[in-house]
Amino acid sequence: MSAPKELPAPSDRLKAHLPAIEADRQVTDWGRSERIEGLMDRTVYDWLYHYWFRCEVEGIENVPSSGGALLVSNHSGALPPDAAMILKAIKEEHSRPRPLHLTVEHFFKGYPGFSMLVAKIGGVPAHPANVHRLLADEEQLVLVFPEGRKGTEKLYKDRYKLRRFGRGGFVEAAMRAKAPIVPVAVVGAEEAMPIFAHMSALQRLTGLLYFPITPTFPHLGLAGFVGYLPAKFKIRFLEPVRTDDMGEEPWLDRGLIQTVADEIRARVQEELIDMLAHRRSVWFG
């Protein structure tokens, strides 16, 4: 996240002036399309979730059923399937399913093709102001991957070792919105599309974020980009961390932000280690 750090002052007064929802529209103001999301859901997600990754979900009750909440997860795989599976898990398992907004790199807004698709299926550029509006004003669920690119580009040999959790920007965003943080641990994504190496020359040529070598890419061409291995997925939603009881304007305290960020990182890492210890097979769980 290299966006400017200027955030609007939190204001309840303006919340009442959010635009009304127009019933005829199928696309939200964020560019999310019900139709395309539904299509993806029925064709790709459904099949991946139930048959390919055979997702197993624990602690879904930790996702609040109303109000804004920030989901924080580990991130992995060349074309990460974890975001889509968390989204699908909430849709399938939660007693009151809600749309989940995925924060994505600004890169996707600038790259043709991705720019169209990513926003349609619920991607929102990871700008602090966007996260704030979603959490505080629209009271939505937002998913962030604080590891960002460092998470997805890590190699197979480094799997399940969490990278640095950004600069704690996600904690600050949650504090300003007074929204709880729900840590999420995902096991399986690392094996679904492992990266063995990077080719920086081709990365520069194509202008992509990275150009990985995976079991299927690039030798199977573009099709290889979505060629996931059938690893068993386990998603665990952990106990939420409240941010509304941290005093007045806690976001001014950089030390507190770093401490909370590190604690959340440690909890996800501990949980991953625990889940891996109980896993007997990569493919069967």
């Binding site: 400017p4 103001d29 600038g110 929102v124 550029p125 966007n130 509006r133």
Partner: peptide, 15 residues
């Protein structure tokens, strides 16, 4: 720009 917020408020500067 690519790095814009989705909704500009009056207090924001261009990136």
């Amino acid at each position: 720009e690519r790095d814009d917020p989705a909704f500009f408020t009056e207090a924001m500067q261009r990136p």
